[in-house]
Computed example of a mutant assay.
Amino acid sequence: MTRADPLAVPSASPPPRNLNIANVLTVVRVALVPLVAWLLLLDGGADPVLRLLAFAAFVLAGITDRIDGELARRRNLVTDFGKVADPIADKLLLGTVLVGLSWLGEVPWWITVVILGRELGVTALRFWVIRHGVIPASSGGKLKTVLQLVALGMYLLPLRTWFDGAAEAVARGTAFAVLLAAVVVTVVTGADYVVRAVRLRRSARGGR
Rank of each mutant, 00 (worst) to 15 (best):
L40S: 14
L41C: 09
L42K: 12
D43N: 09
D43R: 08
G44M: 03
G45S: 03
G45C: 05
G45D: 04
A46R: 12
A46M: 05
A46P: 03
A46F: 04
P48V: 03
P48F: 01
P48K: 01
P48A: 00
L50I: 02
L52P: 00
L53Q: 02
L53E: 14
A54K: 00
F55K: 00
F55Y: 01
A56P: 03
A56C: 02
F58R: 00
V59M: 11
V59F: 11
V59W: 07
L60F: 13
L60S: 08
A61F: 01
I63D: 06
T64A: 05
R66K: 08
R66D: 04
R66S: 04
I67E: 06
I67Q: 05
D68H: 10
E70N: 05
E70S: 10
A72M: 04
R73I: 01
R74K: 14
R74P: 11
R75A: 14
R75G: 06
N76M: 13
N76K: 15
N76I: 10
T79E: 07
D80L: 10
V84P: 04
A85K: 04
A85S: 04
D86V: 03
P87W: 11
I88C: 03
I88F: 13
I88W: 02
A89Q: 06
A89P: 05
K91S: 12
K91P: 03
L93S: 08
V97P: 02
V97L: 07
L98C: 05
G100K: 10
L101H: 02
L101S: 03
S102P: 11
S102V: 08
S102F: 09
W103M: 08
E106D: 11
V107C: 07
W109Q: 11
W110C: 09
I111T: 09
T112Y: 05
T112I: 09
V113L: 14
V113H: 08
V114C: 02
I115G: 04
L116F: 07
G117N: 06
G117P: 07
R118P: 03
R118V: 12
E119P: 08
E119K: 10
L120W: 12
L120I: 13
L120V: 15
L120T: 12
V122Y: 10
T123Y: 06
L125G: 15
R126Y: 09
R126L: 11
R126A: 15
F127D: 02
W128M: 15
W128I: 14
I130M: 15
G133A: 14
V134E: 08
V134T: 13
P136V: 15
A137F: 12
S138V: 12
G140L: 00
G140A: 00
G141D: 01
G141K: 00
K142C: 04
T145R: 00
V146K: 00
L147D: 09
L149Q: 08
V150L: 08
G153F: 05
Y155F: 11
L159H: 08
L159A: 10
R160S: 10
R160M: 04
F163P: 00
D164Q: 14
D164V: 13
D164G: 15
D164P: 02
D164E: 15
G165L: 12
G165V: 12
G165Y: 15
A166L: 14
A167D: 13
A167I: 11
E168L: 15
E168M: 13
E168P: 03
A169F: 07
A169T: 15
V170K: 04
V170N: 05
V170M: 10
V170T: 10
